[in-house]
């Protein structure tokens, strides 16, 4: 990383995504707060990890940023442009710059389309290039992700899962985006394939000047790859900071328990405090005050009174816990 001050590429402030919970008569009986007042900055050229349990709102955060889900409130500024309530033209122009890579990129390919046509599609939609120009771009991207040209003539089901991921990435890269949201990009892959895919991410980042938002529940991958990490719990960021700081000195009890849950062969645990117990509470009926208090071993009466905001009392680290020190 350079020494000059980091440049913000994406600024999220108080972003919300609530899903209405309806009863059998379609009456709204409550809200599921999948993303609850999240504020976050992503710096150009970094890899920001978003980590948390299943159902904590990681993917919803990514999809809301992409406009796949309509946000319920808050602001997003991307490349100095507000990203909420855009007209279709504006959002089309911005969606070239901001891309989302699905958990299973193979499933993001139309099963009836050959790889070539799927890779041409983003360029057909967004650029006025003719067939020859598009094909050149497609072929150079295909080289970059390490797939043979012959794959252009195949259908998605004819290639392996790892290759489908590469095609999914290639499809996104054809538009030369500046920020890519990677949603669980390594889930469901062999460890060996994971490793090659991860190093491919790093190569592509260098080659195309990319910034990644890396959504994952795999802490070891996060630690290896990310510059900064945001830990999410039930729609909120509970801890945010530089990867090394957080992994070495987790201050939020939730982060501490997550880290304790990493099995390490032959080594001692990163933190040996305690194990996380029980299931997260129902996100449609959050506890009062701090939403982690029902599972927190340190919880005191004060925790039930108010929801703690992120505190920046430490260098390179922000923690949303009243008791953290």
């Amino acid at each position: 990383m350079t020494t000059e001050p980091p440049q913000t590429i994406l600024r999220i402030s108080k972003l919300r995504k609530f899903f209405a919970i309806r009863n059998a008569w379609n009456r709204r009986i409550g809200w599921l707060k999948a993303v609850d007042d999240i504020s976050l900055e992503v710096y150009r050229g970094e890899i920001l990890g978003i980590v948390g349990e299943s159902g904590c709102g990681k993917s919803t955060l990514g999809k809301t940023l992409m406009g796949i889900h309509k946000s319920s409130g808050g602001e997003v500024v991307f490349e100095d442009q507000p990203l909420v309530n855009l007209t279709r033209q504006e959002s089309r122009r911005l969606s070239r710059q901001l891309q989302y890579s699905y958990q299973d990129p193979g499933a993001s390919l139309d099963p009836r389309w050959k790889i070539r046509r799927s890779l041409h599609e983003p360029l057909v939609i967004h650029s006025g290039l003719d067939y020859q120009e598009r094909d050149e771009r497609v072929k150079s991207i295909l080289d970059a992700v390490g797939l043979p040209q012959g794959h252009l003539e195949l259908y998605p089901h004819e290639i392996s899962g790892g290759q489908q991921r590469r095609v999914g990435l290639a499809r996104i890269l054809t538009l030369h985006p500046s920020l890519i949201i990677l949603d669980e990009p390594t889930s469901g892959l062999d460890v060996s394939v994971q490793a090659t895919i991860l190093s491919l991410f790093l190569d592509l980042k260098k080659q195309f000047d990319l910034t990644y938002m890396f959504i994952s529940h795999d802490l070891s991958v996060i630690r290896m790859l990310c510059d900064r990490v945001a830990v999410m719990y039930l729609g909120k960021i509970v801890e945010l900071g530089e990867t090394e700081t957080i992994f070495n000195h987790p201050r939020h009890p939730y982060t501490q328990s997550l880290l304790a849950a990493i099995p390490v062969i032959g080594g001692e645990r990163i933190t040996d405090n305690f194990w996380l117990e029980g299931e997260p509470p129902n996100p449609s009926a959050l506890p009062s005050g701090c939403r982690f208090r029902t599972r927190c071993p340190n919880a005191l009466a004060i925790c039930a009174e108010s929801d703690p905001p992120l505190r920046s009392d430490w260098p390179h680290q922000q923690v949303a816990c009243t008791l953290a020190e």
């Binding site: 796949i68 279709r88 993001s108 390919l109 139309d110 599609e121 983003p122 939609i125």
Partner: peptide, 14 residues
């Protein structure tokens, strides 16, 4: 509900 439909919408297809 298939991902590829959502993916194409996210890509900016009309």
């Amino acid at each position: 509900k298939e991902t590829f439909i959502e993916a194409n919408i996210a890509l900016g297809a009309s």
